[in-house]
Design a binder for these strands. Structure first.
Length: 588
RNA sequence: GGCUCCUUAGCUCAGCUGGAUAGAGCAACAGAUUUCUAAUCUGUCGGUCAUGGGUUCGAAUCCCGUAGGAGUCACCA
């Protein structure tokens, strides 16, 4: 982009000089591969000012550029398109500049404070494939925003209270027989999740029994003893009943240990974790304030609502008739608490698109309460992950567990590597490390390369494919370059002014990195970075194969240039992959 | 039904501030290795950009209609 901007600037100068055009909207883009040139000026928008034919205009500007700027080596005109070729000198010096810039592509502090919330698990079951997309997106977006110069705070919000956790607790009391993670060897979140499933099974059985006695389905659902027990437990919890509270803390503790392990494997982390059990009370206070200001209203049964019909939305519940809080209540509380603590310029929520409406309402309510910073809230709404068989349904057992999935990826990576003999002679520890980098990298890249907003299909078989547009392919390119650099240690790395066409392509890509980061930040899309990393790896592989004469030892000069370019490619690949939370192995 | 989003090659996806003949990967087929690690590379095959209109020099991209799909409209979170 730096080169693109440069060309744009030259064209603007030319247009001003030739046609006295001011504030022209000039369009410069990369020249398509089938034409000769580096960048192309589209002359159509200029015609009104130049009052000449497209060809004439393009030729005039081209000649002006060639005569006045040494960086412009040549030009050609096809229809209304002016294709501009920059000089080899320009490319080699651009690359030199880039090499001289530490942390190229990353911006220093821009003074903005941003918060990114992601993960947001419930404490009644383990993380699944949907959470995987959430966590990877959140972590990567945070990294990218940081690279764009923001001060970033990564936060998690744990939904640790509510009827769901009570269900697991009830089931554990009834069927658990004192089981603990250490007594069963199960991860805490899996153990608790199992009881959640057991609750559901028992609940269904009771409904069936009641219906057999002639009760309607709705009635049976309300009157099943086990659900009543769960609801009673929730009331006792809100009253801080010591026995219930202790059990709640114990079981949540198991879950946190399990989550911690999953997060560590996944490679994500947080700067702060919020708990719904702490923020829902503040939410309730806000509801009172809203009531006193007349923004909310109370119905006869005591429930509190806000009427948003004038804004084209519905009426929304904020407090149940029994005074207990709902999702919106605590989210309001959490938002206000966070702003008070951090005074963010931007608050990104990484939450699935099934909650689009929720966030629309959240922003609106905050605004009505007088919090103008609600404009800073951005809902990064990602699409669902579907499986070839269809949707994930916990009831049908088609949920893909995050831990299982990651383990399967690592195992697969190890097997494939071993089959190819890539791991021969390495220690067990090295094998494990490399398998993890590859298996998890494959998973992460497979998910992150897709536009976050889109519903995506997760195909297990394809995700472990190590060819094509995948992380292993990119990692492999990186590892090979590292291998080259190890062998060439001590050799000089110098760029001469003579760069071939392939090298120019690579330099272009390298220069575009900064722009890719900025764009990914604006769009909150790691997919932009993924596409860039893949292009770079692919371009490099072609470069390597297109110039076989450079393969064997040739003159020092050629080797020196090759090494320099290779080294820059490796650096940029590694930086790009870093933004995706993916490791770039030195060998694989 | 209301609102929001989606539909591009057999499959998975890019491309979207309007620009040239719409691109990758996978799958299929045909080739390339005295290498910097072949987990690679090259080539072939594959398209009515869901559909019908509109805007204009020019539309996959912007606007409207239609069809198909998803999400949401809970005293769940």
């Amino acid at each position: 982009m730096i080169a693109e901007k440069f060309v744009l600037d030259l064209c603007a100068q030319a247009a001003t000089a030739l046609y006295n055009a001011k504030n022209m909207e000039l369009q410069v883009s990369k020249t398509r591969r089938e034409f000769i040139g580096d960048y192309t000026l589209v002359t159509f928008p200029l015609l009104r000012t130049s009052k000449k034919s497209p060809e004439e205009t393009a030729t005039q500007i081209g000649q002006y550029l060639k005569e006045n700027f040494v960086q412009v080596a040549d030009f050609n005109v096809i229809k209304g398109f002016l294709n501009i070729s920059l000089s080899e000198q320009f490319w080699s010096s651009a690359l030199c500049d880039m090499i001289a810039t530490p942390n190229y592509g990353f911006v220093c502090n821009n003074g903005r404070r941003v918060m990114v919330e992601f993960s947001s698990p419930n404490t009644n079951k383990p993380l699944h494939l949907g959470h995987v997309r959430n966590n990877l997106l959140g972590y990567s977006v945070a990294k990218i925003l940081e690279a764009c110069g923001n001060e970033v705070m990564k936060v998690n919000l744990v939904n640790d209270r509510g009827i769901h956790i009570c269900k697991s607790m009830i089931a554990w009391q009834r069927f658990g027989a004192g089981e603990t993670p250490s007594s069963t060897g199960l991860k805490g979140d899996h153990l608790v999740g199992n009881y959640y499933v057991k609750f559901d099974q028992a609940y269904k059985a009771e409904i069936k029994e009641l219906m057999a006695t002639g009760m309607s389905e709705d009635e049976a659902k309300k009157n099943a003893p086990i659900i009543i027990a769960a609801q009673e437990m929730l009331v006792r919890w809100e009253a801080k009943d010591p026995e219930v509270y202790a059990l709640w803390q114990t079981m949540n503790g198991w879950v946190y240990d399990g989550f911690e392990q999953t997060y560590r494997t996944m490679g994500v982390s947080f700067d702060k974790t919020y708990y719904e059990s702490n923020t829902y009370l503040l939410g309730k206070k806000l509801v009172e304030i809203g009531l006193s200001k007349g923004i909310f209203y109370k119905r006869e049964d005591g429930s509190v609502w806000i009427d948003l019909t004038e804004d084209g939305l519905d009426e929304k519940l904020l407090l149940r008739a029994d005074g207990t809080s709902v999702y919106m209540t605590q989210d309001l509380g959490t938002a206000v608490e966070r702003y008070g603590e951090f005074h963010f310029d931007d608050m990104t929520y990484v939450v699935g698109n099934e909650q689009n409406y929720h966030f629309q309402v959240l922003k609106l309510i905050l605004k009505k309460l007088g919090y103008n910073w609600s404009d800073a809230i951005y809902h990064l709404s990602y699409g669902m992950v579907e499986l070839p068989a269809g949707k994930m349904k916990s009831r049908e057992g088609t949920v893909v567990d995050a831990d299982d999935l990651m383990q399967a990826m690592v195992d697969e990576a190890r097997e494939m590597s071993q089959e190819l003999g890539k791991l021969d002679g390495l220690t067990a520890q090295e094998i494990e490390n490399i398998s993890k980098m590859i298996g998890l990298g494959a998973l992460k890249y497979f998910i992150l390369k897709v536009d976050p907003r889109k519903t995506m299909l997760f195909n297990p078989a394809e995700s472990i494919d190590f060819n094509g547009n995948t992380a292993p392919f990119i990692q492999y390119t990186h590892a090979r370059i590292k291998s080259l650099l190890r062998k060439a240690e001590g050799s000089p790395m110098v760029l001469n002014s003579c760069v071939n066409a392939k090298e120019v392509e690579i330099i272009k890509l390298l220069l575009e990195f900064a722009d890719a980061v900025a764009q990914a930040g604006e769009q909150h899309s790691p997919a932009v970075i993924a596409a860039y990393a893949y292009e770079l790896a692919k371009e490099y592989n072609q470069y390597y194969h297109d110039f076989p004469v450079l393969r064997s030892d040739v003159e020092l000069q050629d080797r020196a240039q090759r090494l320099l370019i290779a080294s820059q490619v490796a650096t940029m690949i590694s930086r790009a992959m870093g933004l995706l939370g993916i490791n770039s192995p030195e060998r694989m």
